[in-house]
């Protein structure tokens, strides 16, 4: 198994005349938590969808654990897990049935999957409602079920799109601990987020995407030295993505508020 678990080579996606992702070159190593940042519509979700095999690239390639996601999808998908931004589940399955289904889809023997499902349900505090239909779950609870389902097959690569949305503080903290533990065990976490505090405190490296192009990547410290300031990641992000032009407006609003 190679040390680089996620790799893209000139990855491009066009929808008609619009280019969503433009020649993306990226490498994420084992044991790394990679934060994927960018303004709305910058191409983050499209990139993740290409990495998961949900979308075929228009040009270029994406590799998961050295396997081309387009040429060897089944092998690559067996090693990854995806946590979408919207927890869409089968409303007519219970949480336990859903975890059993996911384990079956990822070819885990029944006796192991039952035990692991029980452990994950307990970990995410879902045990008491495990036999209720998912349609009755709140957004946060569904998100927890998705997270449990993502972990059931011991993924080597975890792709997460805004995973903390809808989670209560305790669950968000648990998620961060899980991410750190998985990285410590050698898994790769690729997380797209708007919460820069997560990126700053949890990610080993971050990449900033703007209009489909990777405009910066490196550890938060490296980005600071690139920009040449000791500002927060939020300031660096705003400066790099051109959102700093709103500063004057924000200041004028603050002035009005006083």
């Amino acid at each position: 198994m190679e040390n680089v678990l996620i790799k893209t080579e000139n990855l491009t996606k066009r929808f008609g005349t619009a280019t969503a992702v433009n020649g993306l070159n990226l490498e994420v190593k084992a044991g790394e938590i990679f934060g994927f940042l960018g303004p709305n519509g910058s191409g983050k979700t499209t990139t993740i969808k290409m990495l998961t095999g949900l979308l075929e690239p228009t040009a270029g390639s994406a590799f998961i654990c050295g396997l081309d996601i387009v040429k060897e999808p089944a092998k690559a998908k067996a090693l990854l897990a995806y946590v979408p931004d919207q927890p869409k589940l089968y409303g007519k399955l219970t949480a336990r049935e859903f975890l059993a289904l996911m384990a079956d889809l990822y070819r885990i023997p029944r006796e192991i999957s039952r035990q692991r499902a029980q452990q994950l349900l307990a970990m995410f505090d879902l045990e008491n409602r495990a036999d209720e239909l998912l349609e009755g779950y709140s957004h946060g609870m569904r998100q927890k079920v998705i997270l449990a389902a993502a972990l059931i097959h011991q993924p080597r690569v975890l792709l997460m799109d805004e995973p903390t949305v809808g989670l209560d503080p305790a669950s968000a903290r648990l998620l961060k601990d899980v991410m750190a533990e998985l990285a410590r065990q050698g898994a790769t976490i690729f997380v797209s987020t708007h919460i820069l505090e997560i990126a700053e405190r949890l990610c080993h490296r971050v990449g900033i995407l703007k209009e489909g192009q990777l405009i910066a990547q490196g550890s938060p410290e490296e980005l600071r030295s690139q920009v040449g300031s000791s500002e927060s990641l939020e300031d660096i992000f705003l400066e790099l993505t051109g959102s700093a032009e709103h500063d004057e407006l924000i200041k004028s609003l603050e002035g009005n508020g006083r």
């Binding site: 198994m1 690559a76 067996a78 090693l79 970990m123 998985l182």
Partner: peptide, 16 residues
């Protein structure tokens, strides 16, 4: 976090 088993190193066998 000891309940989290280590990540897979190899893909499970293919299915028909």
């Amino acid at each position: 976090m000891n309940i989290l088993p280590p990540p897979l190193t190899q893909a499970p066998p293919a299915r028909s």
